[in-house]
Amino acid sequence: MSIRLNVNGVSHDVDVEPDAPLLWVIRDELNLTGTKFGCGIAACGACTVHVDGQAIRSCQVPVGTVADKQITTIEGISANGLTAVQQAWIDHQVPQCGYCQSGMIMAVTALLKKNPKPSDEELGAVITNICRCGTYPRIREAVRSLAGTKL
């Protein structure tokens, strides 16, 4: 059975079970490996993508539930060049190993689109992604620097 997925503005027909996790379909069927596997239970956020603009943890999303929705991955958030969030990540030298950062950037981007100037408390309440390298202080600085920026 074939499922139609719209990822980064491109339509794909994938022959997978409807309960296949969106994460693995994105990675292994569509070869978009910027979205990462971290825990498999939606606890760490490494697999965060946007579905119709909402940040979701794709490892726990059955692919059949997002057919015909607009899915955006880290590879698709910028039409050309870098988004303001990505540039802030470079300016503040945020990533260390970098593995969690696709998910961080996706989660922060979705937040800033709704709330362009989050307080530290609002940021902490929404961004619950795990970073083992400990880049949180720089993430906070980068988000503070973006306050009010139009995304």
Binding site: R27, D28, T33, G34, T35, K36, W89, I90, Q93, G98
Partner: peptide
């Protein structure tokens, strides 16, 4: 500034788990 950071903000760094070999099984 670090050399590796630009590729870590756009998802293009290839980690071990990302390697793709033709006809690969899992």
């Amino acid at each position: 500034p670090r050399f590796d950071i630009p590729k870590k903000v756009n998802g293009t760094t290839t980690y071990g788990v990302d390697v793709k070999v033709p006809d690969m099984l899992y």
